[in-house]
Nucleic acid binder design. Sequence first.
DNA 1: CGCGACGTTGATTTGCCTCAACGATTGTGG
DNA 2: CCACAATCGTTGAGGCAAATCAACGTCGCG
Lengths: 193, 193
Amino acid sequence: MIEALQTYLERIAPMPAAEVELLKSTLRPRQLKKGEFMIRAGEISRHAAFVVRGFLRAYVIDEKGKEHIVQFAPENWWISESPGISTDQRAPYFIDALEYTDALMIDLAGHKTLMAGSPVYAASFGEGTQRKVAAKDKRIVQSLSADAEERYRDFMETYPSIVQRVPQHMLASYLGVTPETLSRIRKKATQKK
Amino acid sequence: MIEALQTYLERIAPMPAAEVELLKSTLRPRQLKKGEFMIRAGEISRHAAFVVRGFLRAYVIDEKGKEHIVQFAPENWWISESPGISTDQRAPYFIDALEYTDALMIDLAGHKTLMAGSPVYAASFGEGTQRKVAAKDKRIVQSLSADAEERYRDFMETYPSIVQRVPQHMLASYLGVTPETLSRIRKKATQKK
DNA sequence: CGCGACGTTGATTTGCCTCAACGATTGTGG
DNA sequence: CCACAATCGTTGAGGCAAATCAACGTCGCG
């Protein structure tokens, strides 16, 4: 299990044995069945998870009761209950499994331990955060400038593998359109081809 | 000049004199007149700026030629040409001054120096990044779930001081509506009162 | 002073939502 | 193992929020 994370981290730099040991002692494996929750919004806890196998998603429910998917997390992605592991107390997101999933869990204390004790982890975290911010900026600009069809096409190009694995209505939720609209967009797209 | 940044950083922890010295040697003051550009999208460089006095904004221009404001930066805010100071080469954003501005500039090398040599800077940067991610997530969810009026009201509540200082059409650009729509929303709002 | 930038208001269009109905697929219990 | 329910995607009709297009007043600045 840990090996998958180690491989991921070593895209930055090789990890000395001591760091790998620290990693092992800090992360806790967890399995989730399809549909099972990792965390519910409002629960007090502070975890992040690295997906070794399977597929997780994070979403919020707004005041109108509507679901909005914030992030998908297939293999080799980190996902967390809040934007980054930070100091707040309550999880703003729901996270559940779309498929059977093997994940590695880390809590706030563990995160701090690794930030202090594992340079490779710290570097990877920093880089990952930068990438995350860039992706979010892109999504913001797109939600302002692009119509539904353009957003769909861009998602297809950027994350083709995710499109395959996700039910269409969840993709619609991520893109910010209704399932009906996405269905019509896809119809149009196939006709053109 | 530096004092403003020092005060900002010391919200985390007091800075030893050596760290303050490092700060001084790394940051370069710069003045921008109203309307002047700090950076244009596409230029090769990698800077961030801390606004001591004045007001900056970052924006993109999409394929349709439309402007979208990504961030406003009044006093005591950091702003950068790309999401975080990272490793890419080209600035995706335009940054210019809405008012006469005193800023402190830092480049990628300086950032790395401080990350390594100033624990307080590093801690502040990490915390700031977390906050930034949280704010962006909120903006994403809002663009998906709230209509124009709700987004306007929320902005008013969250950043009342910014509303005062920004031309209305720029606020519209940030919120993702046309100036006409924002004008109508404001009219309605004043009538209700 | 005169021009351009900015905000306002009106008329029209449009992209997307809502509501509704219906097949196909999945899975669940009798 | 079949029957029925639930979930999911599709299609159609109608409505609404916001964009577009257009015209006009006002203010500030060169």
